[in-house]
């Protein structure tokens, strides 16, 4: 790691002010530091300051809260709520199981104890060309995506490039189906829906999100989605980012699916909504396995796998179907 200053922000506004001031040439926001420290160790970033938001709420994150208004429930997390707190919160387990499951299946107990919600959404991709200092890829200002001709087993099956990363966040697909919103300070808006937080590589390849420098996430809200589920397929059951993940939120009328929102992860450079699958699931009974399979098979429409990752076409419908079953409260192995 290069030598840097640690500037402790006393509030999110303070964090934003430090980033925007000319006190430092290349300040980087740090929360749990899991991804930031990784970049520093790999020599990918050489900031002159880390702006530490861990103490922005006075030391501990605000507790997870529920707001009820006109019969609707919404949940509020702090930007600093950890993955472990999300996974083990009985409130989130009841109101948005997909989110609790997505947090609980990420990484390891050690990582989940430190990794924050905002940091998870804004972590950078795992593409091995991006993560290696030796490859001057598009994301680092180079002129090509090495995955196109190179090893692309863990890369995208959707999207037109020019860069073929998959978005790595476990929380993002779950928040997408639950109407998640990131609350912001330091810019000219108070919030941004998670559905608008990310952009595809054709609209800017150097970063994945639409926050401006100095914009800081303060909290995340979501709608209750009691019939929701998350399923990840991984190579190893611990440590690994998923090969494919799916989050589903259902509205049920008895056993009939009245409405379904489906978002896949680890298949595209952004969390990938699958409205065609949502449509096809409508009016299918959750007991009709053939019907569910047929609907989930639509997930791969429009996919364009690369040389080594066509296997994801087989995994994706399975992950979605299992997420649907979990959303309906069924046991899935």
């Amino acid at each position: 790691m290069n030598r840097f200053t640690i500037a402790t922000a006393t509030s999110y506004d303070d964090a934003s002010a430090i980033v925007k001031s000319d006190r430092f040439a290349l300040p980087i926001l740090k929360a749990g530091g899991m991804d930031v420290v990784d970049h520093l160790k790999e020599g990918l970033w050489e900031p002159d300051a880390l702006v530490d938001v861990l103490r922005a709420e006075g030391g501990a994150a605000a507790p997870i809260q529920e707001h009820r208004e006109a019969g609707r429930s919404s949940i509020r997390l702090s930007a600093l709520t950890t993955l472990d707190e999300i996974a083990t919160s009985t409130l989130i387990q009841a109101r948005c199981p997909a989110l609790a499951q997505s947090a609980g299946s990420a990484a390891t107990p050690q990582v989940r104890n430190v990794a924050t919600a905002a940091g998870n959404l804004l972590q950078r991709p795992r593409c091995w060309y991006y993560r290696s200092k030796d490859f001057d890829c598009l994301k680092k200002g180079g002129d090509r995506c090495y995955a196109v001709q190179g090893l692309n087993r863990y890369h995208a099956i959707f999207g037109d490039g020019p860069c073929h990363i998959v978005h790595p966040s476990n929380l993002a697909p779950a928040l997408m189906v639950a109407g998640g919103v990131a609350h912001l300070t330091g810019g000219d808006r108070d919030s941004i829906p998670i559905a608008k937080l990310y952009h595809t590589p054709d609209r800017g390849v150097r970063d994945e999100h639409n926050l401006k420098p100095g914009e800081v996430v303060t909290a995340i809200t979501l709608n209750a989605a009691p019939n929701s589920g998350f399923y990840a397929i991984k190579e190893k059951q611990s440590f690994d980012w998923p090969l494919v993940m799916a989050a589903v939120a259902l509205e049920l009328d008895g056993t009939r699916i009245a409405n379904a929102r489906v978002c896949a992860g680890a298949v595209a450079p952004v969390p990938w909504m699958l409205p065609a699958v949502g449509q096809a699931l409508r009016d299918v009974s959750i007991d009709d396995d053939a019907g569910l399979k047929a609907a989930c098979a639509r997930a791969t429409q429009g996919a364009a796998p690369m040389s080594d990752n066509a296997y994801k076409l087989k995994l994706l419908p399975v992950a979605i179907r299992r997420a649907v079953l979990k959303a309906a409260g069924k046991e899935v192995e």
């Binding site: 640690i6 530091g33 899991m34 420290v37 990784d38 880390l50 472990d84 050690q110 104890n113 430190v114």
Partner: peptide
């Protein structure tokens, strides 16, 4: 009391 990987945490934290 919480389990963490000390290699990924800055001492300052």
């Amino acid at each position: 009391g919480r389990l963490v990987t000390s290699c990924m945490m800055l001492a300052h934290d």
